[in-house]
Simulated scan of single mutants.
Amino acid sequence: MWDPTQYTRFRDERKRPFFELLSRVEVDAPTQVADLGCGTGDLTRVLAERWPGAVVCGVDSSVEMVEEARRRPSPEGVRFEVGDLAGWEPPAPLEVLVSNAALHWVPDHAALMGRLVAKLAPSAVLAFQVPANFEAASHRLVDEVRRLPRFAPKLGAGRARPVETLERYESLLAGLGMTVDAWETTYLHLLPGEDAVLQWLLGTTLRPVLAALGAEEGRAFVEELGPRLRQAYPAHARGTPFLFTRRFVVARRGN
């Protein structure tokens, strides 16, 4: 379902939140680190560079992404696995568990937080960021097109939005014995190229939609969506302005 080349088309915009998240992770010398939703592994390798003494495991549910990650050179101690983000079990308790823009694909975050905390060692850190732009025009237009009679039988009205509020994440994690630092940031991206917002969505949100439709109907879906996105997000000489909100959580487990 996933296309590594399409996903990395806006590499800088997708990487920036990871570094902002990582800047708030204060762990000196962990030995077990995991990256859930590692994609092509570029940011997993950053974790290995920061903590060269650690075993760093990148996990992704996409075979295509993991194959691409394994093809690229990695520091010693880095490995990549195909696995379910909620159900994957580390070989030893983790001192750092990071997830960058992946957990929104997993339903029921109330239960998910408990499963993630259970993977942690005492004093370990869970750090994740998730998109919080599901009410943006981009997502509303995708749902508008998926409800059209041509596509609705295969797609339905839209998928659930599993992302919780910052207050809810703090409450869930505090109840599990974690000390929580949580914040939200809205980025203004100036995306280059033609149909830039459509190209952004083709790397993420539209992947399961197109996989469900197949090639011919997928092309028809994109042809319906493209003009709507161009109207909602007019391009300028500097690029196409695209507001994108993300939620960040860094939580430390007690001793």
Rank of each mutant, 00 (worst) to 15 (best):
W51Y: 01
V59P: 07
C57Y: 08
V46I: 15
G37L: 05
V27M: 10
E68L: 12
V25R: 03
Q32A: 13
V25A: 10
V46C: 15
C38I: 07
G39Y: 03
R50G: 10
E67L: 10
V46G: 15
V66C: 10
G58Y: 04
S61R: 04
T40N: 15
D42V: 14
E26Q: 09
G58N: 01
L36C: 10
E49R: 02
V59R: 04
D28L: 12
E64K: 15
P30K: 06
S61D: 06
V55N: 05
Q32T: 13
V46Q: 15
C38F: 03
R24K: 04
A48M: 00
A54P: 12
V59Q: 01
V55K: 09
L47C: 11
D28R: 09
D60V: 12
E68P: 13
L43A: 01
D60I: 04
C57W: 05
P52A: 02
P52C: 04
R24I: 04
A54W: 09
V66N: 12
V33Q: 11
R24N: 00
D42W: 08
T44S: 10
E49S: 07
D42C: 08
T44H: 11
S61G: 02
A34K: 00
D28V: 13
L36P: 04
T44Q: 08
V33W: 02
E67M: 12
Q32C: 07
V46L: 14
A29V: 05
L36W: 03
Q32R: 14
A34P: 01
D60T: 11
S61C: 04
L43E: 00
V66A: 12
G37D: 07
A48D: 03
L36V: 04
D60W: 12
G53T: 11
R45A: 06
E67A: 09
W51D: 00
A34F: 02
S62Y: 14
P30L: 06
E68C: 11
G41L: 01
A48S: 06
G58C: 12
E68D: 15
E49I: 01
C38A: 12
L43P: 02
R50W: 06
D35A: 08
V25T: 15
G53M: 11
A48C: 02
G39P: 01
D28H: 07
D60K: 13
P52W: 05
R50K: 10
D35V: 05
W51A: 03
G37T: 05
A29Q: 06
C57I: 15
V27T: 15
G41H: 01
E68W: 09
V66I: 15
V56P: 07
E67S: 14
R24C: 03
V56E: 11
M65R: 07
E64N: 15
V56C: 12
V33G: 13
S61A: 06
D28G: 12
V33Y: 04
E68T: 13
G39V: 08
L43F: 00
V63Y: 02
L36S: 02
D60C: 15
V59E: 03
A29Y: 00
T31F: 03
V33R: 01
V27P: 08
V55I: 14
E64M: 14
W51E: 00
V56Y: 08
E68Y: 11
L36K: 00
P52V: 08
G41Y: 05
D60E: 13
P52K: 01
A54I: 11
D60G: 10
D28P: 09
